[in-house]
């Protein structure tokens, strides 16, 4: 897989004749994705992205989180060249994604949030046909389809028509289409939404293997646990701005109060659990003693707490509970 990733990048660099030169000049590898001042205003005046700057290093997994309507999908759609930015620049392995969308897409595997499949084709046919668009020979396309089918646990469905599959199985095919040809960059918009826990775990495994093979992954997700488990770095977008971007530790370090005390009010034992953020473990213990709490827990803050603190909105509880 590494070989394929490197050869794809080399082929594109050769086509462009700039990437490698740029690398040697800067004496550092060109990032997988570089975004500068990305701005998107829709026709109705909505500013969905407002000046996003971001570098994604090669071989890392970046998750993008944010409330509904925050601008995550708009951001990803501009990366994948599906949406033209109003302003700013996007480059993928040094290729200008705005000026050269086709060349950019040769370096990417994309899973859109929603897309339709050809229901009368079988799973195998679907993957083989779409592998051919990625410049694979007939034999390579067959092998790639076979490999992806096995990886995504769809072997029993190989010769079934797509129309006969469940929503989760279709979702896995969409992920499989992105994996075909082992592109160096995967951009996945909520890839595991609608998958059952075991399928989701399988997809995580597939993505980890892709990264181990040299791929870079950018994904948006509604599952906090997915972001925590998979990502090297997490970006939080709200109201069109990237308000935080870093490793989990870096994001946690932004919290002044990084201990979470969860408790039930002794005067309202049947009420909802409450939370309070404390600067230290000792401060949390002091609060427990002062309020004479009997039902409580103290833990280091999590990504969910960072998200809540930075966005002012709780992460969707239903979606959080739906994780493994």
């Amino acid at each position: 897989m590494t070989t394929t990733t490197e050869s794809l990048l080399a082929a594109e660099a050769e086509r462009a004749g700039v990437t490698r030169r740029a690398e040697s000049r800067a004496d550092a590898p060109v990032p997988a994705v570089r975004v500068r001042g990305l701005f998107k205003r829709y026709g109705d005046g909505t500013e969905a992205n407002r000046g996003i700057d971001l570098d994604v290093r090669r071989g890392e997994v970046v998750s993008v989180l944010g409330p509904n309507g925050a601008g995550k999908t708009t951001f990803l759609r501009q990366l994948t060249t599906e949406l033209r930015p109003t302003g700013g620049r996007v480059s993928v392995f040094g290729v200008d994604a705005v000026a050269e969308p086709l060349r950019t897409k040769r370096l990417m595997g994309i899973t859109p949030q929603e897309a339709g499949l050809f229901e009368s084709l079988t799973v195998r046919e679907h993957l083989e046909f779409f592998a051919r668009f990625k410049r694979l020979s007939k034999r390579e396309a067959r092998a790639a389809a076979h490999e992806v089918i096995a990886e995504l646990g769809l072997v029993a469905e190989t010769d079934k028509r797509v129309g006969a599959l469940s929503g989760g199985q279709r979702r896995r095919i969409l992920i499989g289409l992105a994996l075909l040809g082992r592109p160096p960059l995967l951009v996945l918009d909520e890839p595991t939404t609608g998958l059952d826990p075991s399928s989701r775990r399988a997809v995580w495994g597939v993505l980890r293997r892709a990264v181990a093979g040299g791929a870079t992954v950018i994904l948006s997700t509604h599952y906090m646990e997915e972001a925590e488990r998979l990502s090297d770095r997490v970006g939080i977008i709200t109201q069109g701005r990237l308000i935080a971007f870093g490793t989990l530790d870096e994001l946690l370090a932004r919290l002044e109060r990084s201990y979470r005390l969860s408790y039930r009010d002794p005067l309202d034992p049947r009420g909802d659990a409450r939370a309070r953020y404390c600067a230290s473990f000792a401060e949390a213990q002091q609060h427990v003693a002062r309020e004479m709490l009997s039902e409580y827990s103290i833990a280091r803050a999590s990504l969910e707490d960072v998200y809540f603190t930075l966005t002012g909105e709780p992460f969707d509880k239903d979606e959080t509970e739906a994780t493994l």
Partner: peptide, 13 residues
Amino acid sequence: TGRLKLFATLPLA
């Protein structure tokens, strides 16, 4: 039905 979106993800003119 979103199939066009599928083609749009590909390096296809």
